[in-house]
Amino acid sequence: MSDDPYSVLGVAKDANDAEIKKAYRKIAKECHPDLKPGDAEAEAKFKAAAAAYDLLKDPETRKRYDNGEIDASGQERPRQQYYRDYAEAAGNPYRGYSTEQDDMSDIFAEFMRGRGGYGQRTQEFHAPGHNLNYSLHISFLDAVFGASQKLTLPNGNRIEVKIPAGITTGQTIRLRGKGAPGYGEGPPGDALVTISVTDHPVFDRQGDDIHITLPITIDEAVLGGKVQAPTIDGGVNVSVPAGTSSGKTLRLRGKGVKKRGSSDRGDQFIELTVAMPDMVDDELKQFMETWRETHSYDPRKGMPS
């Protein structure tokens, strides 16, 4: 399968945001592991689509990919360096990825003050290396439960990033000593890894709580009963009260995301929605016509006309 996110989603490079989102949702509905358990090919296709959508849905990230600044996984591409780049970086070939805004002229001014004159060095120059900024795309469930992933650096080295449970998009993980090398005997900088979490087609995280919409049939709404509902821990049976209307919400305590600094978890909220059958047959139609004649009611009573 191609690594190009446009090819993965099956859209043109000039596709607009709506077209990209529509393409991702189509693949998610067809291939999500919750909908096709045990289908490795479908799962791989979904994961590739999720990563592609996560990269293209952000205008800034999409622009950087189109300009060749990052690859399809969101990692920085090694940029071509010229003599001036090396001279300005004072021995640091990754200065272009630095998150600091310090003026290099000040550093060299300090460096030159340490010289007693041209060709006469009287003082060593030492300074910490720059911090390097990276982005890492992770799945929804990896963000919920925590995980460990490998991050490829511009020089080809790979480092392990331990993702804490409950992390959210925009949060940054600091890897101490994994940044640019220091000047002289100065320590290396840090690697700052900004996390981007892929959307899930079923679960919606709001703080430490999980929200889903669960469709039920007409008979389940009228008669009530047990139905299966997905959670981040797997499927569970929930009780639908008899006479349930669309919009009624059930609460599963402790089925949400682990709270930071605590063993407690948030809750899961299940909003029920009554789904009509694909086709209303004559038997159902006749029954409802008869029922209407003797059980008519007005759910909109009291609303302004």
Rank of each mutant, 00 (worst) to 15 (best):
S2F: 10
A12Q: 15
D14K: 11
I20G: 07
K21R: 11
A23C: 00
C31A: 15
C31V: 02
C31Q: 01
L35I: 09
L35V: 04
P37T: 03
A42Q: 00
E43R: 09
K47N: 07
P59F: 06
K63V: 03
Y65K: 07
Y65H: 09
D66L: 12
N67K: 15
I70L: 15
D71C: 15
P78R: 13
R79A: 12
R84L: 11
G91N: 12
G91A: 02
N92W: 06
N92R: 13
S98K: 08
T99D: 07
I107N: 03
G114D: 08
G117N: 05
A127V: 01
H130A: 00
L132F: 02
Y134V: 01
H137D: 05
I163S: 03
P164H: 03
G177F: 09
K178L: 06
K178C: 00
P181C: 05
Y183W: 00
P187E: 11
P187K: 14
T194C: 10
V197Y: 07
F203M: 04
I212V: 00
T217H: 04
D233R: 13
V240R: 08
A242Y: 02
T244W: 08
G256C: 02
V257D: 00
V257F: 01
I270A: 01
V274M: 02
P277N: 08
P277E: 06
M279I: 09
M279G: 06
V280D: 05
L284P: 05
K285N: 11
E289D: 14
T290H: 15
E293V: 13
D298Y: 10
M303L: 14
